[in-house]
Design a protein around this nucleic acid. Structure first.
Lengths: 221, 221
DNA sequence: TTCCGTAGGATTGTCGACAATCTTCACATC
DNA sequence: GATGTGAAGATTGTCGACAATCCTACGGAA
């Protein structure tokens, strides 16, 4: 054991095994290492992670509640599989929440300060080393937009949506990158440009186009 | 042990202790038996519930993810305490999601069939034996409205909102009942009437008034 | 062959125990 | 009196083991 690599967040609370495990599982799901639909056998994962089943099961409960994993009593867990319909539904909910956020946020008082987290997220998308980092930054980008509304409960409601979208969107972004359209970074730069206008209607229109493009070409699984 | 009272839902899957425990905890929180802000000591609860700590901890993880309980590493769990600001934020998110739901649902094809779950929930509110049943029915009522949109992911996003609102709203409904305004049932009947119109604008307006009244008199804790 | 029942292994659910950490409180020090 | 220190108790985190259930594959009967 003792092979836990602490992630470099500040305020380093002594991470519990449950948290570390939950994060690792999430990463494994995001990266596809744990494929959609794949059965999760607890003992096998324990061997890989070097933990016992107690913390793993607690982590699985949390992920199940987030909707990344589904759990059936006495017949185990599996990674949730997203249909094209699910993804469309998720985008719809994301659009509703994002739209409300910007309508209630704009115009903002100190635009430069307010947009800093958004800009930083976009920077991180650019600088991202691997796909996982880029996808996390992408999620942070959209979370930062919603956070502009200053409604904490809205942020919390948005979180599982973005998490669930991350898996199917990763595939989409990969293909976009392959078509030399650049990881969707230009599209997000456009969004940031719209935010700089400090005008709700402008941002809403930009969001409409953005979301539209974001899932237009999703594979119809 | 062996004092588990299975709740009478159909399709009686052999409930696991984790599920039973999670439900009991939720009920205890909703009823105020576990007060907001109260520290949760695992072993004490285990004695009361007649379980060991493993299933209790898994249940707590789930509730923590739902936002009913908060968990700090190595210093335990406590029941989440809601400020007036939190509640206002929650109502705002509920309003956004509900509004989108009805706008995307109405007009519906077979109105009578579509509204059956809503009607049934209102009936259950009327017939409710205790406060807990009434509050559960109230939650089902709003869930049924959102379900009209036929967007499963929207339903899922709405669920934690309604759960979190249940605690502070219970207090509100109690006080309303005490003022002889009748558990808010008339207000929900008005909403149902609006739904019967099968017109989105009418419903949205009714929702606006409903939500407004729902949290207008919340105590400013 | 196809269907069904039945071992046997595989997997999940639950428990009790131990180690690590936190909290409390008495006591000493300034 | 305020503040710091340390030991004892309380509480959480993790583990391994056992029981209950599920799944699979084999073998027999129609």
């Amino acid at each position: 054991m003792a092979r836990l690599s602490m992630s470099g967040s500040r305020h380093e609370l002594p991470a519990t095994l449950v948290d570390v495990t939950a994060r690792r599982l999430r990463d494994a799901i995001m990266s596809g290492e744990l494929a959609p639909g794949e059965k999760i056998v607890e003992e096998r994962l324990c061997d890989e992670l070097g933990t016992s089943r107690a913390p793993l099961r607690e982590a699985l409960r949390a992920l199940a509640q987030q909707g990344l994993v589904e759990h059936l009593p006495r017949r185990g867990s599996r990674v949730v599989e997203w249909t094209a319909g699910d993804v469309v539904e998720l985008f719809e909910v994301r659009a509703v929440l994002e739209r409300h956020a910007v309508e209630s946020a704009f115009p903002v008082e100190d635009l430069v300060a307010a947009l800093t987290p958004v800009r930083e997220a976009l920077e991180q998308m650019r600088r991202a080393a691997g796909e996982l980092d880029r996808d996390d930054a992408h999620r942070a980008f959209h979370a930062a937009i919603v956070a502009l509304a200053g409604n904490r409960q809205l942020d919390i409601a948005m979180e599982p949506i973005l998490l669930k979208l991350q898996v199917p969107m990763a595939k989409n972004l990969r293909e976009e990158a392959r078509r030399h359209e650049g990881d969707g970074i230009e599209r997000h730069q456009l969004l940031l440009d719209a935010l700089e206008s400090n005008d709700a209607a402008t941002v809403v229109e930009a969001l409409r186009r953005h979301g539209h493009l974001d899932y237009l070409d999703l594979p119809r699984t």
